[in-house]
Nucleic acid binder design. Structure first.
Length: 428
RNA sequence: CGGGGAGUAGUAUACCGGUAGUACGUCUGCUUUGGGAGCAGAUAGACCGGGUCCGAUUCCCGGCUCCCCGACCA
C-alpha cells in the first residue's frame, strides 16, 4: 500500500516506515474511562484503535498495520491449501436469507430497510451468497472440490458488545467455504483446514486448542472451535492436561476434575477462552435450500457437501494483546508487530539517527522513528506502550562508542552495538 | 433484552441547589534532556429534552450514550 504524505511517498505495508511526529495519532496518558479490558485500554492508549460506538472501532495507522499483518498470514495459509480469494457483498437482499430460514432464526442478523421499504441484511456470514455464486460454475462432479474465501467486515446485531475487540458488532473476519462431491472428500479437506488454522495461530505466536462444540442450529454434527486461553474470553472450555482433548462446556457431558474421555489418563480442567476460529460441516443444507446441485458420474443430480471456516482477524488482534503485554504496554509478537523496529533518537544531534532511519529502510526493515523532541523518559514510556519488539536507541552516550543500543521489548537487557554492525546484528 | 453503575475542559477526575476545582494535554517564554522534566503565564467544560425551584451542573421524570453482571452470540 502506498500513501502520499507531505509530498513524499510513504509506503504502508510489510516494509512500512514512518516518523512519529507525522503520525496523526498520539499516545494517551490516561486510561480511557469507557474501556475496561486490557486489549481495548492498551490499543486505545497506544493509538491503534478508536471506538466509534460499542463494538465498532476505527483502525488507525499502527492498528491497521497489525490487522494487515494478521490478515496476510491468514491469506498465505488459505492460499496454500488451495483457497481462492474473492470479495463478496456485505449488503444482501432479504430474499436469500428468507430462502434458508435464517431471516427469522438468526437473531444477530442486522436487518435494514431501504427508502422504498425493501428489506436487506448485512452479512454476518455468507453461505447465502456463496452457495449460488459458486454453484453457478459447478456443473458436474469434475468441477469439484472448490474452496473460496474472503476477508472483510462482518456485522452481528449483538445485544451487548464487549471486551474491546473481542466481541464487536462489526468485525474483520476471514470466511472460507468449501464444496465437495461427498463426505470423504469433505473430511479430507476439513482436516487440511484444521491444520492450516493451527499453523496460522502458531505463526502469530498463539496456542489454540481445537475444541469440540455445538454444530449450531442447522447441524446435529459437532463443529470445532479454535480456542485461545484467556480470562478476557467468553467461552468456558474443559481440556485434558495430558492429551489434546478439549470441549466447549456448552456441550460437555463432563465436568472439571473428571477423567479425560479420550486418553483415560488425564484430568479435565476448566478454563476461559476466546474463540478465534471455527470450522463447520454444513452437510447438504445450502445446496438443498437453493436446490443447487451437480451431476455425478451417472448423470444423476447430487447436492454438494459444504464446509465453512471462520477466523476472526480483529478478534485475534485483541487476543494477542490480552496474551502479550505487561504493566507498561503491549509486547507484539514479531509476526504481527506493526513495524519491525522502533528507532528512537535522544541524541542532541539527529543526523546519525536520521541516516540510520534511511539505512534501515534500505535494508528492508520497517521502522517507526521517534525523532520528536520530547524527554527521553516520555519516549521510553511511549515505546513500551506501543510495544514494537525491538528498540534501537541513539543517544550521545551510545554515539561516543560509535554505537546504538538495542533492547527487546520483552527483556530488560540492553546491548550496545557498533553502528557498522547494526544491520548485521538485527538480521541475525 | 433483565439487573446494576456512569455521563462535568481535548483526556482523566472533584466538589456543590447560588463564582465549577485539580491533574495531564495544548499554547507562550526561559531552563532542561537515559524512564512520562522544572518554573511562570495562558487556554478550555456540566449529554439531550422536560419538570420542581427565586435560582438546577446538582433534585425529579423521559430520552440517548458508555461500562459491568446475566441472558443472547446458526
Amino acid at each position: 500500500m502506498i500513501m502520499w504524505l507531505f509530498g513524499e511517498t510513504v509506503k504502508i505495508g510489510y516494509n512500512s516506515f514512518m516518523k512519529q511526529s507525522e503520525l496523526f495519532t498520539k499516545t494517551l496518558r490516561h486510561l480511557p474511562a469507557d474501556e475496561e479490558t486490557i486489549n481495548a485500554q492498551f490499543l486505545t492508549r497506544a493509538g491503534f484503535v478508536d471506538k466509534l460506538m460499542a463494538g465498532v472501532y476505527s483502525y488507525l495507522p499502527l492498528g491497521l498495520l497489525t490487522l494487515k499483518k494478521i490478515e496476510m498470514i491468514v491469506r498465505e495459509e488459505m492460499d496454500a491449501i488451495g483457497g481462492q480469494e474473492i470479495l463478496m457483498p456485505i449488503l444482501h437482499p432479504a430474499e436469500i436469507w428468507k430462502k434458508t430460514g435464517a431471516w427469522t432464526t438468526v437473531d444477530v442478523l442486522f436487518k435494514i430497510k431501504s427508502r422504498t421499504e425493501k428489506d436487506y441484511a448485512l452479512g454476518q456470514s455468507e453461505e447465502e451468497v456463496v452457495t449460488p455464486l459458486v454453484m453457478a460454475y459447478v456443473d458436474t462432479y469434475k468441477d469439484l472440490p472448490k474452496a473460496v474465501y474472503q476477508i472483510g467486515w462482518k456485522f452481528r446485531d449483538e445485544l451487548r458488545s464487549k471486551s474491546g475487540l473481542l466481541r464487536g458488532r462489526e468485525f474483520y473476519m476471514k470466511d472460507m467455504y468449501s464444496f465437495h462431491v461427498d463426505q470423504p472428500d469433505f473430511d479430507r479437506f476439513y482436516d487440511i483446514v484444521k491444520k492450516a488454522y493451527l499453523k496460522i495461530f502458531e505463526r502469530i505466536g498463539l496456542v489454540a486448542k481445537v475444541t469440540e462444540a455445538s454444530g449450531g442450529t442447522f447441524s446435529q454434527k459437532i463443529s470445532y472451535e479454535f480456542m485461545v486461553l484467556t480470562n478476557a474470553g467468553e467461552d468456558n472450555i474443559l481440556y485434558c492436561d495430558v492429551c489434546e482433548f478439549c470441549v466447549n462446556e456448552d456441550i460437555a457431558k463432563r465436568k472439571s476434575g473428571d477423567v479425560c474421555p479420550k486418553c483415560n489418563q488425564g484430568k479435565l480442567s476448566q478454563a476461559k477462552a476466546s474463540e478465534v476460529g471455527n470450522v463447520f460441516d454444513l452437510g447438504q443444507k445450502y445446496g438443498k435450500d437453493f436446490d443447487l446441485g451437480f451431476k455425478d458420474g451417472n448423470g444423476k443430480k447430487q447436492y454438494p457437501i459444504m464446509g465453512c471456516y471462520g477466523l476472526g482477524i480483529s478478534r485475534l488482534m485483541g487476543v494477542v494483546v490480552e496474551k502479550f503485554h505487561d504493566e507498561k504496554g503491549i509486547i507484539w509478537p514479531k509476526a504481527v508487530t506493526p513495524v519491525d523496529l522502533h528507532l528512537i533518537n535522544i541524541a542532541k544531534d539527529r543526523k546519525i539517527a536520521d541516516k540510520l532511519y534511511e539505512t534501515l529502510q534500505t535494508e528492508g526493515f520497517s521502522v517507526l522513528y521517534d525523532e520528536t523532541s520530547v524527554s527521553a523518559g516520555e519516549k521510553f514510556a511511549n515505546s513500551d506502550l506501543i510495544g514494537i519488539p525491538t528498540r534501537v536507541l541513539v543517544s550521545d552516550k551510545t554515539l561516543k562508542e560509535d554505537s546504538v543500543e538495542i533492547k527487546a521489548r520483552n527483556s530488560d537487557k540492553t546491548q550496545l552495538v557498533k553502528i557498522k554492525e547494526l544491520v548485521k546484528n538485527l538480521k541475525q
